[in-house]
Design a protein around this nucleic acid. Structure first.
Length: 582
RNA sequence: GGGGAUGUAGCUCAAUUGGUUAGAGCACCGGACUGUCGAUCCGGAGGUUGCGGGUUCGAGCCCCGUCAUCCUCGCCA
């Protein structure tokens, strides 16, 4: 008996291989039994190839072939043959088929709960997660995980070529409150003490800078025990990067070079830098969000001044009224659609949604009557309105208009198909505020994180008006998703202590929580800065999927469970006793 | 913790106003078939309508509770 080991994959044979004898290994995707001829589509992650069994050649093998079912694993040996007229133009290997001379069933499969070979989603997500070993066998999932591999490979390639060192930091780490809830791991050897899983390797990578590893990166697993979303998992991956002896432009140019390398090499784009930069304040003004999707316009227009002059009491009394002009969309929105949009923005915190359909000679709207002719003309002017447009307005305190308007803008962009989903549009957002006020804790908290340096010229503001101080922090936004986030760090321990103080941490707490870090800063810490890229979100964007669960092999459900292995799970009482927990 | 959607055959879904024996496609099982490629044709089997309770002469459908999955607000330095 010949070897069952494959000589080729199921995706590589072409006409040029005709007449050679080959062996393929793979899963049976489909069988077509004609009583006489039996056709098998054999699939692996490289593709699929048709095998044909002819009873005239070997009746025993033909009978065996008739017993093949979906997802059996087989080794098929045979001769590569030109299919001639019978070729299948739909698949890359469709010019040839294998005329079987040998068949070994390596393993049979139970009837799978859903079909593996189809492109459309074959089952609901919980079924797919429960049978993840089958779900991941689907060509679509294999494409995504292969893309993910290419992305991280390209990242490593680029950074290695730039002289970066890949250095690992511990998973068993220490809780440093501030930020997300930690996952804790009890220590057996120190009962009552706990490790924490890292939310990011932030402090350790800064300490690596102190130690002189001036270009560092790591594909770091990060853990945050917070509620999940479509783009949030309790554990996720970051490309974590830090550089010493750089300023903001130094970091940005490396990240930009790497991002272009990724987009161009992996995605076959032809993008060039530099990416546009937008100040945080301008982003909030024009888009209502710090991560605008700039593939389309629909910028916000502030009509507060005009609104205050109208007779519409909601507008007159609101702190801020801002609008969006949905160009040419009047006929696309029925009254029912507009009601649904109103409900949509209310979910985002808006009190309501005012709308106006623009006609040649008037504005059609329940609130048009509150606007004088001159005011209507001015409104048209400010929003550059033309017949056929729909104008939307949200009125509220300024901060409260941001979320609903951004959500509305993104929804309109998507619903009205204002952009090409395949386009990759990058944008730097810079000059974030240092702090935001936390009403429940009655103190400032760091907007990025408390290790971020302010703009040099804003140091004086920290004494007089901390809320106005801006940080040397930067985000790289891709299609409305925050892809990269980073900052130049504080490297002088007095300045670091000053910032800790401003967020309400006294010297005692500083020493207790971050003593090791402050100490390191005293021993010749160089100026440094860096950033982190969310790998999973990056894959989401590049693969064009809208759930982070599609980008990782074994994701957890919204309630943090693995439906296949059944985690989290109870453990033996003995294990708890050893940990001193019971 | 709050709001919302969904849950019917292995899978995806349907089932009129609460009314006869809960249907279809795919998958599965048996049979026919030598050029199919989502094979085709004939036949068959397959149901705790998520779970528990209630209303009713009668519940897949209405009510209450609960569980699961998803979306979302809060949360995520």
């Amino acid at each position: 008996m010949a070897s069952w080991k494959r000589t080729h994959t199921c995706g590589e044979l072409r006409l040029e291989h005709a007449d050679s004898t080959v062996t393929l290994n793979g899963w049976v995707q489909n069988y077509r039994d004609h009583g006489g001829l039996v056709f098998i589509d054999l699939r692996d992650r490289y593709g699929k190839t048709q095998i044909v069994f002819d009873p005239k050649f070997d009746p025993t093998m033909h009978e065996l072939a008739r017993s093949l079912r979906a997802e059996h694993v087989v080794s098929a040996t045979g001769i590569v043959s030109d299919r001639g007229e019978a070729r299948n133009p739909k698949i890359p290997t469709g010019d040839i088929e294998i005329k079987a001379r040998g068949l070994i069933i390596l393993n049979r499969s139970e009837v799978p709960p859903f079909e593996i070979g189809t492109e459309e989603e074959p089952a609901s997500e919980d079924i797919r997660l429960r049978y993840r070993f089958l779900d991941l066998r689907r060509p679509k999932m294999q494409r995504i995980l292969m893309l993910r591999h290419q992305i991280v490979t390209a990242m490593r390639e680029y950074l290695n070529s730039e002289g970066f060192l890949e250095i690992e930091t511990p998973i068993l780490s220490r809780s440093t409150p501030e930020g997300a809830r930690d996952f804790l791991v009890p220590s057996r050897m120190h009962p009552g003490s706990w490790y924490a899983l890292p939310q990011s390797p932030q402090l350790l990578k800064q300490i690596l800078m102190v130690a002189g590893y001036d270009k560092y990166y790591q594909l770091a697993r990060c853990f945050r025990d917070e509620d999940l979303r479509a783009n949030r998992q309790p554990e996720f991956s970051q490309l974590d990067l830090e550089m010493a002896f750089v300023d903001m432009d130094g970091v940005l140019s490396v990240v930009e070079g790497m991002t272009l390398h990724l987009a161009n090499k992996v995605m076959g784009k032809n993008l060039v830098g530099p990416f546009p930069r937008l100040d945080y304040d301008d982003a909030m003004e024009r888009y209502g969000v710090d991560k605008p999707d700039t593939r389309f316009g629909l910028e916000l227009v502030d009509i507060t001044k005009l609104a205050h002059e109208t007779e519409f009491s909601v507008f007159k009394s609101a702190g801020c009224v801002r609008g969006i002009n949905a160009k040419g969309a009047a006929e696309k929105f029925s009254r029912k659609d507009l009601d649904q949009l109103t409900a949509f923005v209310q979910e985002q915190g808006a009190k309501g949604l005012a709308w106006m359909k623009v006609e040649a000679d008037k504005l059609q709207s329940p609130i048009a009557k509150f606007f004088s002719d001159a005011q209507q003309a001015e409104l048209r002017n400010q929003l550059q309105a033309e017949a056929g447009d729909v104008l939307f307005f949200v009125a509220d305190a300024r901060e409260k208009t941001h979320a609903p308007l951004n959500a509305l803008r993104n929804k309109l962009g998507e619903d009205l198909k204002l952009y090409d989903p395949a386009e990759l549009r990058f944008l730097w957002v810079i000059k974030f505020p240092m702090f935001e006020w936390d009403e429940t804790e009655r103190r400032f908290i760091a907007m990025h994180h408390p290790f971020t340096a302010p703009l040099e010229e804003d140091w004086p503001l920290l004494e007089t008006d901390p809320a106005a101080a801006r940080a040397q922090a930067y985000d790289l936004v891709l299609n409305g998703e925050e892809l990269v986030s980073g900052s130049i760090r504080l490297h002088q321990h007095e300045k670091q202590m000053k910032i800790f103080e401003l967020i309400g941490m006294n010297k005692e707490e500083q020493e207790k929580r971050f003593g090791f870090f402050l100490e390191a800063l005293r021993y010749g810490a160089p100026p440094h800065g860096g950033m982190a890229i969310g790998i999973d979100r990056c894959v989401m964007e590049f693969a064009g999927v809208d759930s982070i669960r599609e980008t990782m092999a074994f994701p957890k459900t919204q309630r943090g469970q693995d439906l296949m292995m059944g985690s989290p799970a109870e453990v033996e009482p003995k294990q708890l006793r050893e940990l001193g927990l019971r």
